[in-house]
């Protein structure tokens, strides 16, 4: 059905989307690059002097940057670890025959649909609050000292909140992948005398590899940009304990109005994301057949 006529029409149909995305990538990104070489603060009107790499050297030597980089890696890594391990286990559990499977699925998937600001505020106030939170009530009932989560283990608390939101996603995708596993393969390995343990490692896990790749890719995209959860709970604090790159750039540009410094930070974030993306695209590119 591919005649010359339809080729031209197809190109015409594709072009608006391509042009929009191209514009969305190129225009603001080149502006950010441009700003990153300027001395440009919204509070100091007038001169926007060209200052070379000064913004970059300022941003990259700022101790806050290293704290933020480290926090970003911890946040992404921590949430990935929890959701993948938890997701695989949960998916295997939910794949077993049971009563009320549909309802359990609905319960497990629910947190994914909770908007990040709601999830974070509910955890912060109603669970982790050291006075009135449910965890504090439980500690007191057991005769323990309530633990102030966001003050004493702020990053771990945020990792917990974000993992709660993404665990359903990982579980759902891994469960879907698991259900496509050929039952006869499992029966064959049972006939071959494999223990449930080796069946898991030699059959189930390799089958899930592709789905796990996809989960890592998608979650990384979103986790690199975690923002709302930090904004409504800790504002990046105490100190820089929960500041990630995204939040640091936001604070630099929209709280301190330092457009130049913020832009340099933004470009650094883009470069970091690209490094991650190259790895991920390689992985998924191999796994996707079009």
């Amino acid at each position: 059905m591919a005649t010359t006529h339809s080729r031209a029409a197809a190109r015409l149909m594709l072009s608006p989307a391509v042009l929009l995305l191209l514009g969305w990538m190129i225009i603001p990104l080149s502006m950010t690059i441009y700003f990153s070489f300027l001395h440009y603060n919204l509070l100091i009107p007038g001169t926007h002097d060209f200052i070379g790499f000064a913004n970059y050297s300022y941003f990259l030597t700022d101790p806050a940057f290293f704290a933020a980089l480290f926090n970003t890696l911890l946040l992404v890594g921590g949430v990935l670890a929890i959701t993948i391990v938890g997701g695989v286990l949960l998916a295997i559990l939910l794949d077993q025959p049971m009563w009320g499977q549909g309802i359990v699925r609905i319960l497990v998937i629910a947190p994914f649909f909770v908007m990040p600001t709601v999830g974070a505020l509910v955890w912060k106030n109603m669970f982790m609050n050291p006075v009135n939170g449910l965890f504090a009530h439980m500690a007191k009932a057991l005769g323990l000292q309530p633990f102030d989560f966001l003050a004493q283990a702020p990053l771990a608390s945020i990792i917990g909140m974000v993992a709660w939101q993404w665990l359903p996603f990982a579980t759902l995708i891994l469960l879907t992948a698991l259900q496509s596993l050929d039952r006869e393969q499992l029966e064959a390995s049972e006939m071959d005398g494999a223990s449930p343990f080796s069946t898991f490692f030699y059959i189930t896990l390799p089958h899930l590899a592709r789905a796990i790749t996809v989960v890592v890719l998608i979650q990384t995209i979103f986790l690199l940009s975690v923002f709302a959860e930090i904004l409504v709970t800790t504002n990046g604090g105490p100190g820089y304990a929960t500041t990630n790159i995204t939040y640091l750039v936001y604070a630099q540009s929209l709280l301190q109005f330092d457009v130049g410094g913020g832009s340099a930070g933004g470009i650094v974030a883009v470069i970091l994301a690209n490094i991650v993306a190259i790895f991920l695209m390689r992985m998924i590119g191999k796994n996707l057949d079009i």
Binding site: L29, I221, S253, V270
Partner: peptide, 25 residues
């Protein structure tokens, strides 16, 4: 086609902070 699709996916990886300031301004 495959390249275009992969490229579109890659735009999703552009961190929003990279373009926050220009869009804001």
């Amino acid at each position: 086609t495959k390249d275009i699709l992969m490229w579109m996916l890659s735009t999703k990886m552009l961190p929003p902070v990279g373009v926050l300031i220009p869009i804001y301004l």
